[in-house]
Structures are given as structure tokens and as C-alpha cells.
Design a protein around this nucleic acid. Sequence first.
DNA 1: CGTGAGCGC
Length: 168
Amino acid sequence: MAMAMRTAASRVAAAGPCGLRGLFSTLTSTSPFIPPPSNQADNNRPPPAEPSDNLFVSGLSKRTTTEGLREAFAKFGEVVDARVVTDRTSGYSKGFGFVRYATLEDAAEGIKGMDGKFLDGWVIFAEYARPRQPLPGNNAGPSSYQPGYGSSYGRRSPPLLLLLLVHY
DNA sequence: CGTGAGCGC
């Protein structure tokens, strides 16, 4: 691959202190930025979730399909399931999807490999997905374990009959 | 609205 190694152009050759101005500005560090105080109600939704084998990919193009998502993320790990969320009524993509890897390390590699990268001309964002709400189906017994944000390993997916329609 | 933040059947 073309290693676009960034040359050391960011080396600032400004070694000479501009008289007393630099020293003075260092002492009187006037912060023009408003220091954000501790916000007390914004801790309800931290953007990154806990590490999981499931990834939430956003910023997808409308042209990106499930196969494209799978093919793009399969280069960094074994993709067990990939899905681009499409609207039921229109059928078009909502612009985000989910990628489930086989292991957690594959998911981490997938994030480090695809987060901030381009896919179909759009910068995508890959992060850990939050556990989906308990899917209504065969929920036998009231002992419905809510995984929450803890380590919910041993979660077996039921046999899914997936139909892949190659439509052009 | 396929208008670009977000969490899926």
C-alpha cells in the first residue's frame, strides 16, 4: 500500500522567542475559550459503548449496501453478520448499519481499520454498538436476562434464514 | 427528502 507517510513538515522552525511577548503570554495565559464546566446531565449517553463484537457503523452512503459493508469490514476480521438498516417503507438505506465480528479483537481491528475511512465517497464511523432492545420473539419464561452493558457472552443467535437478493 | 444525526425486526 502506498504509505502516505506524512513528512515532517509540521516541524516549526520558530525557535526564536519573540522578545518578552512570548514569555509574557505564557505567564498571562488568557484563555479565550470558554472552559466547559462539569455538565450534570450529559452523562446519560456516552457515544462509545462498551467493547462488543457488534459494531455500529454510521455515516454510510445511501448506495452502500449490506454486501458492500460486509466486504469492507471483512478485510479486518471475520464478519459474522452485517446489515445496512433500510427503511421498511421506502426500502432505501438509512445511512448506518451494523457489523458483527466473530471475536472482540476482530471488532477492535475493524474499528481501527474502518473508522474514519471512506466508503462509497463518505466518511464512515465505526464504533461499538449498544445491545439492542430485547427482540420480541421466543422469549420463553419471565426470566428474560437483560444483558445491559455487562459482558453478555454466550449469547447464541437463533437460526436465521437470511435471504440475499442480488438486485441491480 | 435520497435534506446526513443516529442504534437494527
